[in-house]
């Protein structure tokens, strides 16, 4: 009985010390004591973030062979390589919490781990590549800028690095849209069509409204999150509307209106039924994205096996030399 009480009070003391640190805005490093719920929340959030970067390469990869110019193709390839790199930063950072990369990939394949819903939508024409860079990366940047100050230091460091690289992504997307809007009537129509299809899913990227957000309370107390879903969504809308106006794209929301007293835009109702339908596997591309990842992972197994075989061969060689 005494032992139980001792461990309880020890745990409580550690928790109190941890919460004092996070409340004071101090960073938490991998070897610091942390509550299990903090570790679990971060593994869920960071692996989802990493998977999103990697799955996000697929809708863009769809256009590499059909990019309209060599310049556009080079840029798209570089951007896709960055997304892969961002996935790697995040997998590495998540591994410091004690989960292995094999486990994270297995969780992705089994459906236990999610990735951003937005990548379950198809890229139907070249303007979609513009819309992804401008809107999807634009929304991701708003979220990631906020996460630069997250309490878990390896996550924060990965975010700083990612934010430095993302502004190229957003600018190249906006440039595609701007060029198409200066083009033929047909090109303008394609750009507007992409805008119409990507606007609402981009707003959904910030997650449910604060009143319906299931993971929030501890995340705020422990400073994993610094801003609410609705705050970040508002920030994204407020900065994007002006950019759309400059290139004469129409935001597909009849209720969008500047609110003078609140100094921000009011916007229409988000279709959360669609959001949950897509999250639960019924979006246009869920199956395609996952099948592709599983297939490529399996097809690449021989490369990893060959690398391991080479490693043990080199090891044997150096033993023989000694």
């Amino acid at each position: 009985m005494d032992n139980v009480q001792n461990t309880m009070s020890k745990e409580e003391a550690l928790l109190a010390k941890f919460e004092e640190k996070t409340a004071a805005g101090e960073a938490i490093e991998p070897r610091d004591w942390m509550p299990e719920a903090y570790r679990k929340h971060l593994i869920r959030q960071m692996s989802q973030h990493a998977h999103s970067e990697v799955i996000g390469m697929q809708p863009e990869g769809n256009w590499v062979t059909r990019a309209p110019s060599l310049r556009a193709k080079q840029i798209l390839l570089a951007k896709i390589q960055d997304e892969g790199g961002h996935g790697l930063y995040l997998y590495s950072a998540a591994e410091t919490l004690g989960i292995t990369r094999d486990e994270m990939i297995a969780q992705l394949h089994s459906g236990k781990a999610k990735y951003s819903n937005i990548f379950n939508y198809p890229t139907l024409n070249w303007a979609d590549i513009g819309a992804i860079g401008w809107l999807v990366d634009g929304a991701a940047i708003v979220n990631q800028v906020s996460l630069q100050r997250t309490s878990y230091a390896p996550y924060s460091r990965a975010m700083v690095r990612i934010c430095k690289e993302e502004s190229f992504h957003q600018r190249q997307g906006y440039e595609i849209m701007a060029i198409m809007m200066r083009g033929t009537a047909e090109q303008r129509e394609m750009a507007q069509d992409a805008m119409n299809r990507w606007w609402w899913p981009s707003l959904m990227m910030f997650g449910p409204h604060d009143t319906d957000s299931p993971h929030s309370a501890d995340a705020f107390k422990w400073k994993i999150k610094r801003h609410t879903n609705d705050e970040l969504r508002q920030k994204f809308i407020d900065k994007t509307v002006q950019q759309a106006e400059v290139i004469e794209l129409t935001i597909p929301d009849p209720d969008l209106k500047w609110n003078e007293s609140k100094q921000c835009y009011d916007y229409g109702k988000i279709n959360w039924e669609e959001f949950y339908r897509v999250i639960n596997g019924h979006g246009p591309c869920n199956k395609q994205r996952m099948d592709h990842h599983i297939r490529v992972h399996k097809e690449g197994a021989w490369v990893r096996e060959a690398a391991e075989a080479y490693k043990s061969k080199q090891k044997n060689k150096s033993i023989n030399l000694n």
Binding site: L88, Y89, S92, A93, E95, R101, P154, R157, A158, R161, R304, A307, E308, Y310, K311, Q314
Partner: peptide, 11 residues
């Protein structure tokens, strides 16, 4: 900077 995965020094 962070970490990476590889099977040998060159990789």
């Amino acid at each position: 900077q962070g970490s990476i995965h590889a099977s040998d020094k060159k990789m």
